[in-house]
Design a protein around this nucleic acid. Structure first.
Lengths: 198, 198
DNA sequence: TCGTATAGATCGAATGATCGTTCTAATCAT
DNA sequence: ATGATTAGAACGATCATTCGATCTATACGA
């Protein structure tokens, strides 16, 4: 997830991610990051200019990772429905297999702690743009009702976020079956003619 | 929102809510709460045992308020679809008219800062239970597909949360029209026969 | 009615811990 | 030997919390 960083930076970023998700930001002190990562505080400041900088670097790295994770499975030659399925399945897989990064983004994408510039960079590398394009295609092909792609993506992403939250809290088992039913319901929610055409 | 508290407690809770939403928890110090609320730190500790206690009291008060806000418009005599509409419209109205309380709950309902006991009390006074009952009825009447009511409620609530987030960030204007389209899509997502029967 | 006793409410300075950050000295690679 | 890298002690600021003093208001005895 942090391939483009050196060993020290990677240790700091990984440790920070774990601590923030497990203990919240306020309980994640620099001294704790130093102790857990095995990098002294002085050295942390050699590689990062501040605590804010660490968080923002973390944010950008995870968004990039997530964006690649979701888009790498997409193939423009596939049908819209196939792309729709692949894309959302990747998002769900991301939430299941990389829960800390997923929760971090979910938690900080609206936070003032993240610089606007980080969010801007994030949008370019993230998966929202490609996802909206799929919805745009579906509308153009008469498959979806004419709503704002951005709105539909946000709605469906919100559904997934809350399904994953329930899953992580053991309120709901997110089996392949449940996943399939969820995706089907997303499609039906905005399809012009009801039915998952398969 | 804090009618059942005395003047001092109310000032502290209101101030804390505003500060936490505007500046995040870590930037919300006791001294700042004291200054902004006009209550001295010593006196705050006369009414609250700790900072955690304030947050937890805030959590319980807001969940209670939200629960009453949503359920007060429900009428068991109405059709399931009418109840479905009224309930979700109330949730959206809540998010629009009481955004700070709404965001606070959204932010802290999965946080370790909130005691499990607070969450338990919250569930009893919240609107999730009644909402799930509406879905259960819809299933029993053959209107909805047979999915877990909890799952469906979480999905639709997640959609609303993200619509409201977009709305609050001016990425999307949440007009009455858009609201109606969203509710319609929720219904269609899980309805057995497609169509908003009206 | 008046003076005093009592209990709670309120205050803000003081406390010790911890915060993010800096600095200096030691270590390493070349 | 020199410049980059690392370590951890030290710094001032700020944190949540405590504490003794003061204020307020009601109750009581005469």
């Amino acid at each position: 997830m942090f391939e483009r960083y050196n060993k020290v930076q990677r240790a700091v970023l990984e440790t920070t991610l774990h601590l923030i998700i497990d203990k919240e930001l306020q309980a994640t002190s620099m001294s704790l990051i130093a102790k857990e990562s095995g990098v002294s505080t002085g050295n942390i400041y050699h590689y990062f200019s501040s605590k804010e900088d660490i968080i923002n670097e973390l944010y950008k790295a995870i968004v990039l990772f997530n964006g690649e994770f979701v888009t790498k499975n997409l193939n423009a030659a596939d049908s819209v429905q196939e792309q729709f399925r692949r894309a959302w399945r990747s998002v769900i897989e991301l939430g299941k297999n990389h829960p800390k990064g997923f929760r971090f983004i979910e938690q900080y994408s609206f936070s003032p702690y993240i610089y606007e510039q980080s969010k801007l960079e994030a949008y370019k590398g993230g998966w929202c743009g490609p996802m909206e394009k799929i919805y745009r295609q579906a509308i153009d092909q008469g498959l979806f009702v004419e709503l704002e792609p951005h709105m539909m993506v946000q709605m469906h992403y919100g559904s997934i976020v809350y399904l994953l939250k329930s899953h992580q809290q053991n309120m709901l088992e997110l089996t392949a079956d449940v996943e399939e039913q969820a995706l089907r319901s997303f499609w039906n929610a905005v399809s012009k003619e009801k039915g998952w055409n398969e």
